[in-house]
Design a protein around this nucleic acid. Sequence first.
RNA 1: GGGCGCGUAGCUCAGCGGGAGAGCACUCGGCUUACACCCGAGCGGUCGCAGGUUCGAACCCUGCCGCGCCCA
Length: 869
Amino acid sequence: MTNAHPPSRDLPAQFVPGEVEGRLYERWLERGYFEADPKSDKPPYCIVIPPPNVTGSLHLGHAMDHTLIDALTRRRRMQGYDALYLPGMDHAGIATQSVVERQLADAGEPGRRQMGREAFVARIWAWKAESGGAILGQMRRLGEGVDWTRERFTLDDGLSRAVQTVFTQMFDDGLIYRAERLVNWSPALQSAISDIEVDHREVEGELVSIRYGDGDDAVVVATTRVETMLGDTAVAVHPDDERYRHLVGRTIRMPITGRDIPVIADDHVDPAFGTGALKITPAHDPNDFEIGRRHGLPMPTIMDEAGVIADSGTRFDGLDRFAAREAVREELRAQGRIVEERRPYRHSIGHDSRTGVPIEPRLSLQWFVRVERLAKAAGDAVRAGDTRIHPPELASRYFDWVDSMHDWCISRQLWWGHRIPVWYGPDGQTICVGPEEEPPSGAGWRQDDDVLDTWFSSGLWPFSTLGWPERTPDLDRYYPTSVLVTGYDILFFWVVRMMMFGLYAMHAVPFRDVYLHGLIRDEHGRKMSKSKGNVIDPLELIDAFGADALRFTIARGSNPGTDMSLSTEWVAGSRNFVTKLWNATRFALANGVTVDMPLPGEPTDADRWILGRLREVREETDALLEEFQFAKATEGLYHFTWDELCDWYVELAKVQLRDESTAQGTRAVLGHVLDALLKLLHPVAPFVTEELWTTLSGGESVVVAPWPVDAGRPVDPAAAARVADLQKLVTEVRRFRTEQGLPDSRRVAARVADVSGDAEAALRALARLEPDGDGFAPTATVEVVLSDGAARVELDTSAAIDVAAERARLGRDLAAARKELEQAEKKLGNPKFVEKAPPTVVDGIRARRETAAADIERVTARLEALPTP
RNA sequence: GGGCGCGUAGCUCAGCGGGAGAGCACUCGGCUUACACCCGAGCGGUCGCAGGUUCGAACCCUGCCGCGCCCA
């Protein structure tokens, strides 16, 4: 293999992320590693980005999406797939329009209505050009392996064509209709919004009981929105309610408006609730609307788009709805109409999820998607397993939603978005104009003013980005996409819509797997919010600790469907891990390690052990990643790297490297393990692994290096057991030293019995023991029961030992062994246990009993041998 | 009100039928030629409460208490 960049075989003492990340990323782009190739003979793998809003900047939620998607696609690329991570952004209708409107207001410029539609939309485009770049820059900082040649925007020409095409098809299929309905109206946005854009929250309001009518004909009704009485057109009671039977069919005179309204009987009135009589305001309450429809009641609208009382024919016209509430209440009070007031009265009301303003149900003419058939298909596809939801617990939420979905209001009274492709003619014609058709011209024709809900276009994202409605090579190859990665919070907003549209337009699910991650919270599990001041900016974390550290932290915390807590300390911990990896590789390089050296024909126990562990870890990592278990996979690699490779193998390697007979084999094993480990870590920590792997291997790039399918060797249980014994022995001697206050710098003469030659050399190095020379006079003995019998280390501490400390140490050992013996004997003393438990379990307990008994005997002897004070 | 989930070491979490774990924090000792962003040794928990199933329960079942989320 020829190398464009001959490796320099050594590394700076410190990894400084800021100095290498940009350079590496540019190199990856130059070489086109991230560009997909539909003509390739490799199997395809595709993930489309959940498009961030152009308004914003990357927050930790995005960083999580992006880290996980990038990890999945990088791994597949290494596994030999033609992997496509497709980037793009969402025009985010309401959010973006609001931002620009606020900018205009702040700058004291004319508002959008004064500017006019065309100028205002042009203004947003200009702003988008400027702000859209911020996110792209942040994605590069995170190291995302996206195919920039395929970047898309929900409002670009191709995607707009896709929107128009789907709209037309659905219109022709009768799946899109226009109707006057009571919709969720946001007085703040002055637009309709869909059900899921409404948050229901408890508020402290008031419940006011009002008397309508007089004398025997009086009826008391209660309401939390007194002002709506201006739009009342009936009072409803239950047909079987004796209290009101005499009133049904008669009229009752309203206070303030002086209108006579009918008393009607309707089964839906709950006679047990309140007085059993209900005021009916059909144009301003969903239930009242239904009752009004059933009884053919008039439906006067008494508020305008901004929530200001209008056309009520009363003096309250012009008052904001909340001011009107007070004013109407006071007027009623003055007229002696108020029977009771409960305040505060806690009840749940809908709020516009974007602005937080209470929703005003409003009767208006809007466009809807008839969802029944589409939602059923979306549910069935998951039931049939065509798309799998991870974690499965969240599938039930999905089913609940699709199985009881209401028609979707898709028109928005905004300007920024896909304009509804419907034209109205001078004689009342309504025609839907497809992308290949010319809109009607001539006097009296005009296009619908509204734009589509943003989620309408994001719902098409998995195929519109691949070129639909054209039948492009990309579309043929990458649809259905492989996985969708997103937060569970937009399961309904987005995932359901993509399922519905994908099945409708493509007749196939949009993705095979859906991985739903949780939210990133602060270090105490609280939601991050600007008002709490606990928001962490991912770029600051990248600046402080490097992109790899942030990515590693996110991956390590991502259990399916579960929120994670994150603090700078955690990211610092990941940075430390990256540093550890860096230094381990530096150690290898300094000792002449390269990859592809032939593994030793006669590996040492340590070699066999670490190669076996590598095999196991690689298999676990693969299995976990296939199940989207990012946290567990990452955690496993963390511990393998730190606790096994660095803490033990590298230390043992130092001994082996000093010995001619094992030095070369050790280099080969270290090279082999690091080669595989760097590859395994690359998907989550791309920068540091690239820098280390290219230096170590001289290879072109780990981005395109093959995934280590054959890493390691089959486990050698005997060798593994001997290494475990050695670890136990070393730890026990270290413990003795610590208890005796013997610093590491102080070598202690020791005589070792019943330990193999190799192990003894390792023990002496790791426990800082020196040979027993002339005049060796042991002052203490450390005994350890190992898998094949007891080992003994006699130590000459060259002074009287601290007997009290040693007595304490042995005392703890004795207590532990006694507890162990007691537990084992209790179990074995239970005949039912011996009879019913599996033999392997019983044998295990027996072995523990024997070990404990031996420990007690040994420790007791040692204690007795100690000099008495 | 319905549904889902969670209560395990000071904090954040993993473990989900057979010996209570991790990271951080804390204590003690160390600049041991990869690493002080480090090394070594430790401290720390009636696994929310109460019943039940089982030879055996943090783990399965039931109830209760507390918390979160989604939907009404």
